[in-house]
Simulated scan of single mutants.
Amino acid sequence: MTSGSPFVIVVGFDGSEHSQAALNWAGDEARQRNGRFHLVTAWSNAPLSWYPAVMETAMGGIAVPEDSPRQIAERLMAEALKSGAAKGVVITGEVVENHSPAAAILAAAQDADLIVVGSRGHGGFSGLNLGSVSSQIVHHALCSVLVTRSKSS
């Protein structure tokens, strides 16, 4: 951070309880430092996991598929931007197609002063204290990193 430039916080956000804690913490910190924060939500299409077309069911009816991963990510981002704006700070966001959420967050944080991530996201190993994305961020970030936990953890 150079003198005169705002304190910049990059937040990894996937909608999980831990990432919500990261969003809340970053909003409070940005407000205290007269800074700004930038949200990053990464998504990817797993092979054969989702098809964006209307499909016929075996009964001959029409089944509308679930939202695509991109639509889910965009909805999460819109909700997060609203809640962040309520904190009275400058907030921006981006939805990134990337198979590595950690890589997307690290790329967005090239000029950041701080990265804030939740201790873990939606991964299947609920007993982990630190998820794979958070671990990668901690080990590869070029700036300070804060890992938050939700209050229920």
Rank of each mutant, 00 (worst) to 15 (best):
I9K: 09
A80C: 07
D113A: 00
S100M: 07
L114R: 03
V40S: 06
D67N: 13
A109D: 03
G15E: 08
V133E: 05
Q20W: 07
P69M: 07
E74D: 15
M77T: 04
D67M: 13
V117L: 08
V116N: 02
M59I: 01
V11M: 02
G127N: 11
V147T: 01
H99W: 13
P52V: 04
G118E: 09
A80F: 10
H122F: 11
D67W: 09
S19R: 04
A103I: 04
Q71H: 11
T57C: 06
P65G: 14
S19V: 06
S3Y: 13
R149Q: 12
N24Q: 14
E56N: 10
A26G: 08
G124H: 07
V95K: 11
G127P: 00
G123M: 11
P65M: 13
L23A: 14
N45W: 13
L142T: 06
V145Q: 02
R33T: 04
G93M: 09
V116H: 03
V54F: 11
T41S: 11
R33Q: 13
E97F: 05
G93R: 10
I137V: 15
S49C: 09
H139V: 00
L130A: 06
E74W: 09
Q32W: 12
T57Y: 05
I105V: 11
D67Q: 14
L48P: 00
S134E: 02
P65Y: 10
I115S: 00
N98P: 02
A109E: 03
A109P: 05
V10A: 03
R33C: 02
V116R: 01
Q71Y: 01
E79R: 06
L128V: 07
F13C: 04
E97H: 12
A103F: 03
P69H: 10
E94Q: 14
Q32E: 15
M59H: 10
V96H: 12
A104T: 07
P69E: 09
S100V: 05
L146G: 00
H38V: 01
G4Y: 10
R149I: 01
R120L: 02
A80R: 09
F125E: 05
E66G: 11
V95H: 10
S49I: 03
S119W: 01
V96Y: 12
A86R: 12
I62P: 00
T148W: 01
N98C: 14
R149G: 03
G61W: 01
S68H: 05
A30C: 09
V95G: 09
W25G: 03
P47V: 11
R31N: 12
F13I: 06
S153Q: 14
P6Y: 06
L128K: 03
T92C: 05
E56Q: 12
V10W: 00
N34R: 12
L76K: 14
L142W: 00
E17W: 01
K82W: 02
S68D: 10
L142K: 05
